[in-house]
Amino acid sequence: MPNNPLGASRPTPPGTAAPAAGSDGQPLKQQTDIARAAALIADPSRARMLKCLADGRALPASALAGEAGVGAATASAHLAKLVGAGFVTVARQGRHRYYRLAGPDVGAALEALALIAPPLPLTSLKQSNRTKALYRSRSCYDHLAGQLGVGLMRSLLERGVLTGYDGIHRAEQAVRDRPASYGHDVRYRLTAAGREHLRELGVDADRLPPRRPAIRYCVDWSERRHHLAGGLGAVLTSRLFELGWVRRGAGPRVVHLTDSGAEGVERAFGLVLPHQ
Score class of each variant (00 low, 15 high):
89 T>F: 02
134 L>T: 04
266 E>V: 10
8 A>H: 01
49 M>N: 07
221 W>M: 14
217 Y>L: 10
62 S>N: 12
259 D>G: 11
243 L>C: 08
147 Q>F: 05
38 A>N: 10
100 R>N: 10
141 Y>K: 00
77 A>E: 13
135 Y>C: 10
192 A>W: 12
22 G>P: 04
177 D>E: 08
57 R>I: 02
96 H>S: 14
122 L>G: 00
11 P>L: 09
46 R>P: 03
90 V>I: 09
93 Q>E: 15
77 A>D: 13
105 D>Q: 15
179 P>Y: 09
166 D>T: 07
182 Y>R: 15
188 Y>A: 10
144 L>A: 08
17 A>N: 10
158 E>G: 03
134 L>D: 00
218 C>W: 03
155 S>N: 08
165 Y>K: 06
93 Q>V: 12
8 A>T: 03
67 E>F: 06
40 L>I: 11
20 A>R: 07
108 A>K: 03
170 R>I: 04
68 A>R: 07
253 R>K: 13
150 V>F: 06
67 E>R: 09
185 D>T: 03
199 R>T: 05
136 R>W: 09
257 L>P: 00
151 G>Q: 08
183 G>Y: 00
165 Y>R: 12
265 V>S: 03
76 S>Y: 08
256 H>G: 03
47 A>T: 04
246 V>E: 03
136 R>P: 03
117 A>K: 13
18 A>I: 07
262 A>I: 06
103 G>Y: 08
47 A>Q: 13
238 S>F: 09
215 I>Q: 10
143 H>T: 03
20 A>Q: 11
